[in-house]
């Protein structure tokens, strides 16, 4: 097991955002976490990457308890994240944004190799190399956010709503690239409102409702589950 979350609770002030959720991600999997707005998906991601302190429970990554490890050190251990809203550094060029992903790495050869790999995945980014991140379109920014997370050379890639605000064609493209990244050996945990795409691409999935996991199963099982269909896939 690459990632294991045990009984995680998290508070925003006095409001409990997560009510003891448990989930796991095996090495090599794509796991989707679906749920409505405010269900706690982004909160779960921020807890895993260390941006939000947890109230109780455990986060075990790659065999180590990282619950109390600082966010910047979790990156070094192999948790890479493309955050919600993309988090592109607007005043930095595309190239600089990608180099930020390699901030704590020292292996020049490996960095150059990964940069080539990212440009290979997203040829668009190569064309925009010298352009400021803030001037990119939404789709390009999403590519940059995913590419930048890949520059941390993650064992586990966390993607928070990669399809948000994108045109249908671009959504298709982003998900194809996620599958490719996974096939090249990176484990992916994906948070999505676009349940259809996410579940059809994922090996397994979890359904999150108001801070609790209410269902889990393989991507196909969830995709055909009547309750999931009604609530998240827009079919009765």
């Amino acid at each position: 097991m690459l990632l294991e979350i045990e009984n995680l609770t998290l508070l925003y002030g006095r409001i409990q955002a997560l009510h003891g959720i448990s989930l796991h991600v095996n090495e090599g999997e794509v796991v989707a976490l679906i749920g409505a707005n405010g269900a706690g998906k982004t909160t779960t991601m921020r807890a895993i990457s260390g941006l939000r302190p947890v109230a109780s429970g455990k986060i075990i990554f790659d065999g180590h308890d990282v619950t109390k490890v600082r966010a910047d050190l979790r990156v070094i251990r192999g948790i890479g994240q493309a955050p919600e809203g993309r988090g592109v550094f607007p005043g930095m060029t595309v190239q600089e944004n990608l180099e930020m992903g390699a901030y704590s790495r020292r292996d020049r050869a490996g960095i150059a190799q990964d940069l080539a790999m990212v440009f290979d995945l997203f040829p668009r980014l190569r064309e925009r190399q010298r352009q400021a991140g803030g001037t990119l379109s939404g789709g390009e920014q999403q590519m940059l956010a995913v590419g930048r997370a890949m520059m941390t050379r993650p064992k586990l890639l966390l993607l928070d709503e990669p399809s948000m605000g994108l045109a249908p064609m671009l959504i298709q493209q982003i998900f194809e690239i996620i599958t490719r990244i996974n096939e090249q050996g990176t484990t992916v945990l994906l948070v999505e409102q676009n349940a259809q795409q996410a579940l059809s691409r994922a090996h397994r999935g979890y359904v999150l409702e108001t801070g609790s996991i209410v269902k889990e199963g393989s991507g196909q099982e969830l995709l055909h589950d009547p309750a999931v269909k009604e609530a998240y896939l827009g079919v009765a």
């Binding site: 966010a71 988090g87 550094f89 930020m100 704590s104």
Partner: peptide, 20 residues
């Protein structure tokens, strides 16, 4: 670049491995 990253977006900077 680390300084600029924290100035622009401290949370995302942490996700890049920058120690704030």
């Amino acid at each position: 670049r680390g300084i600029r990253a924290v100035a622009q977006d401290p949370d995302t900077a942490a996700l890049m491995g920058v120690n704030k």
